[in-house]
């Protein structure tokens, strides 16, 4: 399975994502330049974290129009897996690959921390190696992570099992203090209707080795590996 990691001007987690795939998992990975229109036959596209186009206008708003994103959207429409991490989640929402939007953190601060997220649906290609209720410790680093959507959209996401991760406290329970950005319904990550696009604010690619604090991010990549290779 080959991973393609998109580099936009201002991406800064593309190297971390490459490291996660190529070094931690030992899988083939290539960088995909934002001006390219060639996905190079990759199976999985990673939209990495960072500040694409300087977050001008709104986070992710400009990146969505880059040439590579037209190919990423076509890949997603054809059922190809897309993993949008942090700025990648913002881009996926702006591109209409996922519903909702990510707004300024409710406390107006950039939050850099390690959070706990609970697996709400283990029947996805991104969580098949998890159980519902598993709590993963994953770093976050963002200023615009407050997931926002109208009530109907939120109800539909919940009803269809598309809320994949929720921020929780040390007891595995959502509470206002455990929610780092004021996201509606403590939502940390969602999937698309077809289940092949995951967007999440936490950074699983920065949690691949115990040495750096947590290896829980591997579960997401290993799930993908199990499902896509199957």
């Amino acid at each position: 399975m080959k991973f393609g990691i998109v580099t936009f001007p201002g991406s800064n987690c593309d190297y971390d994502s490459y490291h996660a795939v190529a070094d931690s998992l030992g899988l083939p990975a290539v960088y995909l330049w934002h001006k390219s229109t060639d996905l190079q036959g990759v199976d999985v596209v990673v939209l990495p974290g960072g500040f694409s186009y300087g977050d001008y206008l709104r986070a992710g708003a400009i990146a969505r129009f880059s040439p590579i994103m037209q190919e990423v959207a076509a890949h997603a429409r054809a059922g190809g897996p897309v993993l949008g991490i942090c700025n990648g989640f913002q881009i996926a929402c702006e591109a209409g690959l996922l519903p909702g939007a990510l707004l300024r953190n409710a406390n107006l601060q950039f939050v850099s921390d390690t959070v706990r997220i609970r697996v709400e649906n283990a029947d996805t290609m991104f969580t098949s190696r998890c159980e519902v209720g598993d709590v993963l410790r994953i770093p976050i680093a963002h200023g615009d992570g407050r997931f926002t959507a109208d009530a109907d959209t939120l109800d539909r996401l919940e009803g269809e099992g598309r809320v994949v991760f929720r921020y929780v406290n040390e007891h595995g329970v959502p509470d206002a203090n455990a929610n780092p950005n004021g996201s509606m319904r403590d939502i940390a990550g969602i999937i698309s209707e077809e289940g092949n696009v995951l967007g999440l604010m936490p950074h699983p690619e920065r949690a691949m080795e115990d040495l750096i604090g947590s290896a829980d991010g591997r579960r997401i990549f290993e799930s993908l590996l199990a499902r896509v290779s199957a």
Binding site: L103, R104, N105, N107, T148, G182
Partner: peptide
């Protein structure tokens, strides 16, 4: 402007 009903933390601080 942020739509009515959507939390605007900057607006609230001001």
């Amino acid at each position: 402007v942020p739509r009515k009903g959507i939390l605007d933390p900057q607006g609230k601080a001001v």
